[in-house]
């Protein structure tokens, strides 16, 4: 479930990156974060499948819920990393101009 959620996040981020108007949102960061994690979980899934065989596809309900929460948390963590980088790099200069703005 974690792999599935991360792959969906990777595909959505990639489509958003491809259809972007400019490069000021640093969407590439998010794309690489999600694809990197997806590839690593894919390897994990292959090893688990080799160990559990068909049982791998019939997880217990409780495990599935736990994995879903984990997947969503991973998506959220990657979003937080991306937002923090966006604010630090500040490609549109929004933070800089707001910090330099004089109060009326």
């Amino acid at each position: 479930m974690t792999l599935l959620i991360t792959v969906f996040a990777a595909v959505i981020a990639t489509v958003k990156w491809y259809t972007r108007k400019d490069d000021t949102m640093l969407l590439g960061t998010l794309v690489f974060l999600y694809w990197g994690a997806s590839l690593m979980w894919l390897v994990d899934a292959v090893f688990k499948y080799a160990e559990l065989q068909a049982e791998y596809f019939t997880p217990a309900f409780e495990d599935m819920i736990n994995d879903t929460f984990l997947g969503l948390s991973v998506v959220a963590l990657a979003l937080v990393i991306w937002v923090v980088r966006l604010l630090i790099v500040d490609p549109r200069g929004v933070i800089r101009s707001s910090l330099l703005r004089k109060r009326a």
Partner: peptide, 20 residues
């Protein structure tokens, strides 16, 4: 840079899974 982002992304998100 593409490789470093994929490696760091995967490592950090998997580290989070291990903390979980």
């Amino acid at each position: 840079k593409w490789l470093t982002w994929m490696l760091w992304g995967g490592a950090v998100l998997l580290a989070f899974e291990h903390v979980w």
